[in-house]
Write a protein that binds this DNA or RNA. Structure first.
Lengths: 205, 205
DNA sequence: CTGAAACATGCATCACTAGTCACCTTTGCC
DNA sequence: GGCAAAGGTGACTAGTGATGCATGTTTCAG
């Protein structure tokens, strides 16, 4: 028994997988454009070019599709960051590359990013998992950097949530709302903040 | 002519205002608990203790209620911050007080905060207006602080979006998801980041 | 070539909700 | 006390959308 517990109807063996992917793609588009709740199953199946019933061959409901999309974004983003950030960079350099890569990702996959954000209002657990997972990896990366003295020490958990918040709002403001994403000058300003904070040099401690 | 343009049916003169407020309160609760889309008009009117039709005496639809709630949160938050932050504080001190006050606000009015966040998926303009307005005031406050040399200079617009992102994620992580809000030690860690950044003292510039 | 498993269809059912409206109640001014 | 305006009601209409299912179609091993 393949321990299918609550894990719906995922099994399949060929073209089925392709159909499933087309449904996921159409859902990403529909959710991104209309929002999760306004998008209907029939919008999705129409977009995928399949009949309504076909949807239920692969998913129990819309929520399940959303969860899948959010996890997909998590994997894609990690993969992307891994590939965009050379191993030999110092933490601050890596941070800059990471933010730049993230911003490109959001600009290019606006629908998917919106879907992730909306998951907070569909199933909070999906959203929490997404960020808790990301935070876990981020914290251990910072820990290593502290050990190598590439950055100073501090409450890394809090700092990571701060950094994720920074990324999120930059993604919103410059990835979704700006024509041309985040420019180099602006990225400089971001890094200036992250490196040095806002206190005058004389007031730092 | 009272230039009622698109401004629905707001006029009233006595107990009507009280009813309208009860509807807004019930909507805040319903939206916060179930989400905007899952909450029905009849959920709201039931919560307010009025008949369904009464809703349409004061609002055209759910969206309008949401807009009202978001603008309400904006006003309340500003008022709160104004009252919580003594005038004679330096910018860094004010920043600390502001974050602490914001965190208390989110913890106490979780439903309202959720409503504001969900507005992004109901009517993006409402959400943008909320943050664009907030950013405007925040930027000019920072400009004044720069003039007084309380903080160093930089790209204040970018910094403000960073700071709002920080606030938002702290609100999420510690205001909505943590039992006890943001502790003093954690607030210290936040201020440490905002003051000094994460670079080692030797690497600062 | 053939039959069974996997895939796919699309319509019918069922539940639910936004918004309307004809009618009733309260308020307060004369 | 009478009456008009403001406030309030709740059943009803029209529409939408999720989901079930009986009925095809495709694929491919033997």
């Amino acid at each position: 028994m393949p321990s299918s517990d609550s894990a719906s109807l995922k099994p399949m063996t060929a073209r089925g997988e392709a159909t499933r992917q087309r449904i996921l793609g159409a859902a990403e588009e529909a959710f991104g454009k209309s929002g999760f709740f306004r998008a209907s199953i029939s919008d999705i199946t129409r977009g995928a070019g399949v009949a309504q019933g076909t949807f239920y061959l692969y998913f129990q409901n819309k929520e399940e599709v959303l969860g899948e999309l959010v996890r997909h974004m998590g994997r894609e983003l990690r993969r992307m960051l891994t590939h965009s950030i050379p191993q030999d960079l110092s933490r601050l350099e890596a941070e800059r590359e990471g933010i730049a890569a993230f911003m490109r990702f959001v600009s290019q996959r606006q629908n998917l990013y919106r879907v992730v954000q909306e998951s907070l209002f569909v199933d909070e657990q999906i959203y929490r998992d997404y960020y808790m997972d990301f935070a876990r990896g981020y914290i251990s990366a910072l820990e290593k950097s502290v050990e190598k003295s590439e950055i100073r020490d501090g409450n890394l958990e809090v700092w990571v949530w701060i950094l994720m918040g920074v990324g999120h709002f930059l993604g919103l403001r410059y990835g979704l709302w700006a024509e041309n994403g985040l420019g180099d000058a602006e990225l400089d300003a971001v890094m200036d903040f992250i490196r040095n904070g806002i206190a005058r040099p004389a007031d730092r401690d």
